[in-house]
Amino acid sequence: MSLTLTQARAALDSGFVLDLTPPLTLWLREVNPVTGPGEAFSMIFHAPAEPALSQQTYRLRHETLGEQWLFLVPLSEGGEGAVYEALFNN
């Protein structure tokens, strides 16, 4: 199931958990509409700097949205943490 803009906005400031050892929580900090056909938007996640995630698809769990497969793109990494983006075009 693909996320909608409404669902993504409802999940702002909540955690999406990646099953690593130990688990890694990515916090949804922004949901931004994107100009384009259909309902396009981006989700911006903040996470600890380590472990750094490479650009690829990850299975994340959310308490209300359930399991989601998201293609994450690293935007920045540093001492303050990492920022990742997932794009949607429904």
Rank of each mutant, 00 (worst) to 15 (best):
L65P: 12
F16K: 04
Y58V: 12
P48G: 14
R9Q: 15
L60P: 07
G38N: 01
A10L: 15
P23D: 01
R9H: 12
A52M: 10
L18T: 04
T21N: 13
V17K: 03
T64L: 15
Y58W: 06
Q56Y: 00
P33A: 04
E50F: 14
T25E: 08
P37D: 11
L53D: 04
T25A: 09
G15M: 00
P48R: 12
L18W: 06
G36C: 01
W27Q: 06
I44K: 08
R61D: 14
L53G: 03
L12Y: 10
D13W: 08
L3S: 08
I44G: 03
A49R: 03
A11T: 09
R29N: 02
S2M: 10
E63L: 15
H62I: 11
L53N: 04
F45R: 07
Q55F: 13
Q55M: 13
F16H: 00
F45K: 06
G15I: 05
D19H: 06
V34H: 05
Y58D: 06
A40V: 00
A40S: 09
F41K: 00
D19R: 13
S2H: 06
P48A: 15
L20W: 01
L65R: 10
G36T: 00
E67H: 11
H62S: 09
L24G: 07
D19P: 08
L60N: 07
L24T: 06
Y58L: 04
A40M: 10
Q55T: 08
T6F: 12
L65M: 15
H62G: 11
I44Y: 00
P48T: 13
S42L: 07
P22I: 03
S2E: 09
I44V: 15
G15R: 05
A11M: 13
Q7E: 15
S14G: 00
W27P: 00
P37H: 10
T4N: 03
V34F: 01
L28N: 08
A47G: 09
A49M: 00
P37R: 12
P33K: 02
P37A: 11
H46D: 06
L3N: 02
T6N: 13
I44T: 05
L24F: 03
S54M: 07
L53A: 05
G15F: 01
A10Y: 03
A52S: 11
Q7R: 11
G38S: 01
R59P: 08
A8Y: 08
T64E: 14
E63R: 15
R59Y: 02
S14R: 12
S54H: 04
G36W: 01
L18H: 08
Y58A: 11
A52G: 10
E39Q: 10
L20S: 13
G15A: 15
H62D: 12
A8R: 05
P48E: 09
L60Y: 12
T35Y: 02
E50T: 11
L20C: 03
Y58Q: 03
L20H: 02
E30C: 00
